[in-house]
Design a protein around this nucleic acid. Structure first.
Length: 573
DNA sequence: GCCGTTTTCGGCCCGACTGTTTTCAGTCG
């Protein structure tokens, strides 16, 4: 089994932790962390790149040394420097650093003076009151450690964007009632439209920061106030979500928004550009000596370092700064460029509304078309349609279309891809449809090769148009099936097929990296909601956010085309 | 360990908050 990018990234991260505890050169430690971030967030697999003989040292933050180390990991599965570090320093010390408030210095002291090797040791020492006796520690620190080690559950859980949105909008409504508030924005990965968020970063401009903070820390859903200051406070909510609120003066709002939107690596890169030009950039503005020369808007900050405005979804330091410098930023797709939605269910299978209700809801959104894609027979739990019912459904759609003015329903089906690569309906039925969405719902556990061959074979069917939710994952709930996505995308491109970006907030399948990969390959994408009710049609904005993170433009997306153009694109001959 | 439109050596982003301290180190984002 080929090693995954995230395994390489976590090995580098672990190595950085151990070296940090050993008091190694902090810049070397940072170099490992930077490299881990590059590898973890890269759109193509290191294993594939090594196999193709590509030069890894061309990647940002990866030099000759790290390129060799990554190559070794791909080829042997081992990172010798990590093994050496683990023989000098107990590996579990890296786990201790996952406890909030424990960094390398404290972990080292705990290890050297109390012989603490593990989370268990730490818990015991805290309970016995040993930690407060250490120099630099005290009662409060001990209590903090005790509380957090109890609550620590291992895997850090990120919150899905839909849930974050619900929490954020309630909190914003509450904060807006604070006196003197001028602007509020949810920044951080939420603003970058990342599919999950680790915490919420809320930026506020107000006459008096302390008034806002007092109100904030009294929010009823708070279970712990982690820190409280005049300009910044951090709390944890009952839901487990951590929320940071920061207050800045209006004149700094743009600089602060830029700073708190991140991503961190993007900010660092922008700051470095500033330093080169003799500026200091922080959350209060861009400074030349002690004079503020920019910062009221984000555009001003970028302008100061000679760049055009960069959209939040692009700020991940994966080439956007270079692209901006060359004037090659993509014109990111916007929701109003869409002409329709290509994946929706009705009561006929497992949806909640009728054909007419779905059509009217889609017309309300200004769409020209909506594809009706019931499940096929194989998906019995979703009341999938067999041949007879599909033919009947087609007639009903024709009848309704004759009555509709503003919108057309497209005759379609979400047909199952069977284990042998055939489709779950006969060709003569598929031939009568406007398009097909073809999906895998069973047999997730095939080998990578088998799964890839299965789907490629399905694409050989001339009626195959769009590969639905291509990885099958459910965020935080179900891992994707193992498949060679790059090969699938190449195969789709060669055959005149497309891939779906399923906009459902539990799926968001393609990932942002996969969107980048599709774009690189030149494969066009359908952004579809997979709506099971009229309300679900509004999930489209999640898909748009993900597409924008994947650098997609209107041209890269097929459902930006008016109906006649779409039909031409879907023809495979 | 990475990086370079002043550099292949000598830099490496910057500020807020906490707790334990009497002026600051550690941690975090």
């Amino acid at each position: 089994m080929a090693i995954h990018n995230n395994e390489i990234a976590s090995a580098l991260e672990r190595l950085a932790d151990l070296l940090d505890i050993e008091d190694a050169n902090p810049f070397r430690v940072r170099a490992y962390r930077n490299a881990a971030r590059t590898v973890g967030g890269y759109s193509r697999s290191m294993a594939d790149m090594v196999e193709h003989g590509e030069d890894l040292s061309k990647l940002p933050e990866i030099g000759k040394d790290l390129a060799d180390k990554i190559k070794t990991m791909v080829e042997t599965g081992k990172l010798p420097v990590l093994n050496e570090a683990e023989s000098r320093t107990p590996p579990a010390l890296s786990d201790l650093m996952k406890i909030e408030g424990l960094g390398p210095k404290r972990v080292k002291i705990l290890y050297q003076h109390l012989d603490i090797h593990s989370l268990e040791d730490l818990k015991r020492a805290a309970n016995k009151g040993k930690i407060r006796e250490l120099e630099g520690f005290g009662k409060k620190t001990e209590a903090m450690i005790k509380q957090r080690v109890e609550r620590y559950s291992g895997a850090e859980k990120r919150t899905k964007l839909l849930v974050a949105q619900e929490v954020a909008s309630a909190l914003i409504k509450y904060l807006k009632r604070s006196q003197g508030v001028k602007q509020i924005t949810v920044a951080g990965s939420y603003r970058r439209r990342k599919e999950t968020v680790g915490d919420l970063d809320i930026l506020v401009s107000a006459k008096k920061g302390s008034t806002v903070m007092t109100r904030f820390v009294n929010y009823e859903e708070i279970i712990e106030v982690i820190s409280q200051g005049k300009t910044r406070s951090t709390v944890r909510l009952q839901s487990g979500l951590q929320v940071d609120v920061r207050v800045v003066p209006q004149v700094s709002y743009g600089a602060a928004l830029h700073y708190f939107t991140g991503a961190k690596a993007h900010n660092i890169a922008v700051r470095k550009l500033g330093v080169k030009q003799g500026y200091k950039i922080n959350e209060y503005g861009v400074f030349e000596d002690d004079k503020r020369i920019a910062g009221k808007t984000e555009a001003e900050v970028y302008q100061a370092v000679g760049l055009p405005y960069i959209e939040p979804e692009l700020r991940e330091n994966r080439g956007e700064i270079e692209a901006a410098r060359k004037g090659k930023l993509p014109q990111l797709i916007t929701q109003d460029e869409l002409c329709g939605d290509l994946h929706a269910h009705t009561k006929a299978s497992d949806g909640h509304h009728s054909l007419r209700q779905m059509a009217e809801a889609a017309a309300q959104l200004g769409y020209q078309y909506l594809a009706i894609t019931e499940h096929s027979h194989r998906v019995t739990v979703a009341n999938g349609l067999d041949k007879t019912r599909v033919l009947k459904h087609i007639k009903e759609i024709d009848k309704l279309n004759a009555q509709l003015d503003d919108i057309q329903l497209l005759k379609s089906i979400e047909v199952d891809i069977m284990e042998d690569g055939s489709l779950d309906l006969p060709d003569d039925v598929l031939a009568q449809l406007d398009l097909t969405v073809c999906s895998v719902h069973y047999k997730f556990n095939l080998s990578r090769t088998q799964q890839t061959e299965r789907i490629l074979k399905a694409m050989d069917n001339p009626h195959f148009n769009i590969l639905g939710h291509p990885s099958g994952r459910l965020i935080n709930e179900r891992e994707p099936y193992d498949v060679d996505l790059e090969r699938l995308m190449q195969g789709a491109k060669e055959r005149g097929c497309f891939v779906e970006l399923n906009a459902h907030p539990d799926r968001l399948d393609l990932t942002d990296d996969a969107c980048l990969l599709a774009k690189e390959i030149g494969l066009k994408v359908a952004i579809s909601t997979d709506a099971h009710s009229t309300n679900d049609l509004d999930f489209m904005h999640f898909g748009i956010g993900q597409a924008r993170r994947g650098w997609l433009t209107a041209d890269d997306v097929i459902n930006t085309r008016p109906l006649n153009q779409l039909k031409r694109l879907l023809r495979r001959d």
